[in-house]
């Protein structure tokens, strides 16, 4: 939630390491060729360790992220106040004022096509989102701790007015 810049930093670090490592492998000792069998012997040994590392990272990353899943069945939302949100080309119908520090559940649906219900915090970061679909209600559990004006933008292409489809609410 609001972690866009964190992701960007992680991405820069990963990309820099990957590019540096690949350039190193390609350029190191390029002027002094070795027979393929020599490179393969070392390469296959490294690959076993590398495979282990990649698998461990994948499984650990998965396990670490599971508690942060945003879904209603993953987040305690018993007794929360339900807020109805209805999207339609090209506006959101919802209350203008919401309480701070109270567990809420947005019940989000659409009257026409698919929309995205994207909530931007007062500092401008993307804070939470869920799809607004016709025929379906998506339940988004959330709790606001920062007071101020939140902007809502459509985050699923919904037609010619998509870029102008926004709304907002105040958290007090």
């Amino acid at each position: 939630m609001g972690d866009g810049l964190l992701v960007l930093r992680i991405f820069f670090v990963v990309a820099a390491i990957a590019i540096a490592a690949m350039l190193f492998v390609a350029l190191y000792g390029a002027k002094k060729p070795l027979p393929q069998s020599v490179v393969n012997d070392a390469g296959y040994r490294i690959r076993k360790l590398w495979l282990g590392l990649v698998l461990v990272v994948a499984v650990v990353a998965f396990a670490l992220t599971v508690p942060f899943f945003p879904y209603p069945w993953a987040q305690a939302s018993v007794g929360a106040r339900h807020i109805e949100v209805t999207a339609a080309q090209y506006a959101f119908v919802m209350p203008a004022v919401l309480p701070a520090d109270v567990p809420l559940v947005f019940d989000v649906t659409s009257q026409d096509v698919n929309h995205g219900f994207g909530i931007y915090a007062p500092d401008g970061t993307l804070f939470a989102q869920v799809q607004a679909m016709p025929d379906y209600i998506n339940h988004l559990p959330i709790e606001f701790h920062v007071k101020g004006h939140y902007v809502v933008r459509c985050l699923e292409f919904c037609g010619i007015g998509h870029a102008y489809m926004h709304g907002g609410f105040d958290v007090r």
């Binding site: 939630m1 609001g2 972690d3 866009g4 992701v7 992680i10 991405f11 990963v14 990309a15 990957a18 990353a61 992220t65 942060f68 899943f69 945003p70 995205g116 994207g118 970061t125 993307l126 939470a128 989102q129 985050l155 699923e156």
Partner: peptide, 20 residues
């Protein structure tokens, strides 16, 4: 790598349908 970060559900909340 960018795809994998976006495919991480808690990060996807911040990136889904953004320019990412």
């Amino acid at each position: 790598s960018a795809a994998i970060l976006d495919a991480t559900i808690p990060f996807n909340v911040d990136l889904h349908n953004t320019l990412w």
